[in-house]
Computed example of a mutant assay.
Amino acid sequence: MRIPEAAPGSKVLAFGHYQPSDVVTNDDLAKTIATNDEWIQSRVGIKERRIAPAGESEVDMAIQAGGKALAASGLAATDIDLVIVATCTPESTIPNVAGRVAHRLGIGAPGAFDVNAACAGFCYALAAADSAVRSGSARNVLVVGTEKLSQWIDWTDRATAVIFADGAGAAVVSRSETPAIGPVVWGSAGDKYDAIIIKDRDSFLHQEGQTVFRWATTALHPVAKEACERAGVDPSELAAFVPHQANLRIIETIARKLGAEQAVIARDIVLAGNTSAASVPLALSRMIERGEVQSGGLALLLGFGAGLTYAGQVIEIP
């Protein structure tokens, strides 16, 4: 038996993101359900969100974000040998999203699989990419988080219609002589599996908001701290904290308990809504684009959501 040549570490070469063009404001929602801008902002912090039109799929959005990440990485499509897509909202489960994304981007015969860890999906997929590169199983990996949550939402349900949105974010992971993606800290709280659930193919997403809020604001800051510890990083050294964009109050509570006040904290939820597995790469890609964070700085990524699942790791910003 031969063991593939291992890499000392892996790094993110580039990020990319995509949002649909259709903007839905809080005032738009107030025309069809019993809500208003003040109520929504005070509870979840969202002002507006992007919703994909009927003809735009999660595959289409993944291609846009993945293509941008690939172009920014300096690699060609032929350099990619593994594609991982994190999503919990595919229109169909067979064939997988990753294979279709790879084909349409011109990536020939890569390994291709999907990850469903809901809102933690991108961090799970990034950890899988890191392991594949370090083990020698892959040299260059395209990792995408993409969601079309709008097709699984009851737009008359105030509890979910004001929160969820559509979009995609992507990253290209490659070999590195020094590790630039820290060890993942992941886990689940399966006893709360039904706090966020779609019961069957004829149902809409249902969320027990208070259960999720209490869990997220009490159980996740230790996970964030452990991810820093395993990477050998003190929270005070972070340039950015990029948690899943679930709820602005959750984001700010975790950041405060983590003790990362000096870091730039992603608040993409205000204008993007909750995009599940897309939210972490989408938020960080937009932060990079706006110049809010600098290359070489350290960012803590933290995904959490349905399952209930969670995962976090520290990365070097490309």
Rank of each mutant, 00 (worst) to 15 (best):
E147R: 05
I198Y: 02
G312H: 08
T156L: 01
L105R: 02
R2H: 05
A168S: 12
I254H: 03
D157E: 04
R100A: 07
A195P: 14
P8N: 15
Q210M: 11
R256P: 01
G55A: 13
I251Y: 01
Q64E: 15
L300A: 12
P179R: 14
A118R: 05
D60T: 04
E91L: 12
L258W: 01
A98T: 01
A77Y: 00
A127H: 02
R50C: 10
C88I: 11
A171P: 02
R201C: 08
P183T: 14
V212I: 15
D202H: 12
D154S: 08
K31Y: 09
A77L: 11
P235C: 14
W186Q: 14
G16K: 10
A77K: 05
K47R: 15
R286Y: 06
I254D: 02
I46K: 07
L75Q: 15
G45V: 01
T25V: 06
E289H: 05
G187L: 03
S279C: 05
E56C: 04
V184A: 15
Q41E: 15
A52P: 01
H221A: 13
K225F: 03
I181R: 00
V143Y: 11
I3M: 13
I197H: 07
D81A: 13
L308R: 08
A6W: 06
E5Q: 12
D22N: 15
I107V: 05
V233T: 15
M287N: 02
Q294R: 13
K148Y: 03
E91F: 08
F241S: 08
M287T: 01
Q64H: 14
R134A: 09
I265Y: 02
A170T: 12
R175T: 14
V185G: 02
F122W: 07
N116C: 10
D60G: 04
A138D: 11
E229I: 08
T275Q: 08
E91V: 06
I107Y: 04
I250Y: 05
M61H: 05
D191R: 07
I265T: 10
W186F: 13
G167M: 10
G291P: 07
N116M: 00
A171M: 09
C88K: 01
I80Q: 03
V314S: 06
A278F: 13
S174Y: 06
G296S: 03
D200Q: 03
R230Y: 09
E229Y: 03
T218W: 04
A34S: 13
A52C: 10
D268P: 00
L75R: 15
S42M: 04
T35C: 08
T93M: 11
L301V: 04
V85G: 07
G55H: 09
I84M: 07
A255S: 11
A227T: 10
I250M: 09
S10N: 07
V314L: 02
A125I: 07
E252C: 00
L220V: 07
V115S: 00
D114K: 00
P53Q: 13
R249C: 02
I254Y: 00
F213A: 01
W186Y: 12
E5K: 12
L13C: 09
A299W: 05
G303E: 03
T78A: 13
R104S: 12
T87Q: 09
G273V: 11
W215L: 15
A86G: 01
A216P: 04
P53D: 15
W152Q: 13
E289L: 03
S285I: 13
T25M: 12
Q41D: 12
K148G: 10
G209S: 02
L205S: 11
I107C: 01
C228Q: 11
D200T: 05
Q313A: 15
A231V: 11
L220D: 00
A219S: 08
A30H: 10
